[in-house]
Design a protein around this nucleic acid. Structure first.
Lengths: 218, 218
DNA sequence: GAATTACTGGACTAATGAGTCCAGATAACC
DNA sequence: GGTTATCTGGACTCATTAGTCCAGTAATTC
């Protein structure tokens, strides 16, 4: 059973709603609790009772808002991804120089990629890979894919300025992500380190910028 | 409870073994079955009954050889890592030229890093990160750490030859691993692609060699 | 007030899975 | 043969958990 095969119950609202209306604040509380718990403990490690309790709501209410665990997880992932959308990533880049701007962008994305929630999300997806291809798609499109687009935009700008010489911008953007994640992302994933330090992030950014400019700078 | 806190039962053998001796072939069968199942279905997804059945052995026998699931998994991981130890990775590198040899080494390691079992192992470790810090250590030391050493050796050779100019060989070796894994390793991990094609591997190798030589070649 | 729908809390079902127990068989040692 | 320890297969306990059911109560429309 895939996450999409079961819809949110009573999704289609009648024109004139009869009876007591759904409490939207409870709906939010449930998704929020689910989002935190799934990221914290993974899909299997989180029980519906836990979620109900954390949301301060009865279990029946959870099932009244969400058909099953998979659907709830799916929505929780959507929420978490939205919280981390890189919409603002390129906004206050102030176009000083290629190197300064590249560093600013890398810094922003490194913090996104290496943040606790980001790693937790990756782990959640790995854990649920068998049962949740849908989960991964939601994440990939709203997260890394969106970020990839922003990076390409950024690179194109400096290519047009003649400061970068790149054959394949898509690949170059991928390279940036790969370099920023580096080795620490994986180490954190498997629990060999339990926090990615500020220093480590800065080091990754510096290395990435240096490598990237050496490869593609004009 | 950590994996090391419970020892293999009856580990210490008396000088004169009394009674029926343990069947070592069954022991191997159990570890083998466990190794395949844990990699295939993860820690939680694999039941002790499954393992017993696949090993063609009774459940009691499993518990007679291994104290608990964690211990068995730990041994299964050790075995799997041994199967993939990169001992032979540098053997038939024939010292033609830096580029040819680097390509050969990268090819070998790429196949190691991106192979089905390697990705499955990474996923297993991610899944069991909370309960099994020990698992990750076993893996890291015998796998990536060993590989890292080999890579450094290799690089040092060509530094000595004057063909490479590298400030920090450890970091350079890390970079090689990171580049070889690239984006596909993660994509495969979260189930967005279900096999890493031959073509994809070769592309990763080519890109890595090109980038690496541009960065460090003299 | 009547009908309708939502929320609660707790009991309930059904499945799964780790680990134990036991009776009988088997293989080694003395 | 007697002793000791392993192996088998199946029954068993115990805990967890997804999902359901229900009786009572709260909110909203008509």
């Amino acid at each position: 059973m895939t996450a999409t095969s079961k819809e949110n119950p009573r999704k289609t609202k009648q024109k004139t709603a009869r009876g007591r209306p759904r409490d939207t604040s409870k709906n939010k509380a449930i998704i929020n609790a689910a989002s935190r718990l799934f990221l914290e403990k993974g899909f299997d490690g989180t029980s519906m009772d836990d979620i109900a309790k954390r949301a301060g709501v009865s279990k029946q209410t959870v099932y009244s808002h969400f058909a099953c665990k998979e659907v709830l997880c799916s929505e929780a992932i959507s929420l978490a991804v939205k919280r981390y959308s890189p919409d603002t990533a390129l906004e206050n880049v102030e176009e000083h120089s290629l190197e300064a701007d590249l560093r600013a962008v890398c810094d922003k994305f490194a913090r996104l990629l290496l943040g606790d929630d980001s790693v937790a999300m990756a782990n959640l997806l790995v854990t649920s890979a068998p049962k949740g291809l849908e989960f991964a798609k939601i994440y990939w499109n709203a997260g890394p894919q969106a970020m990839h687009g922003k990076l390409q935009e950024f690179l194109q700008h400096w290519i047009d300025q003649g400061a970068l010489s790149i054959g394949n911008t898509s690949k170059a953007a991928d390279l940036l992500s790969t370099l920023l994640k580096g080795k620490v992302h994986f180490l954190r994933s498997i629990g060999l380190i339990d926090t990615i330090s500020e220093k480590q992030i800065q080091e990754n950014v510096e290395d990435t910028v240096k490598i990237f400019l050496k490869l593609y700078g004009t």
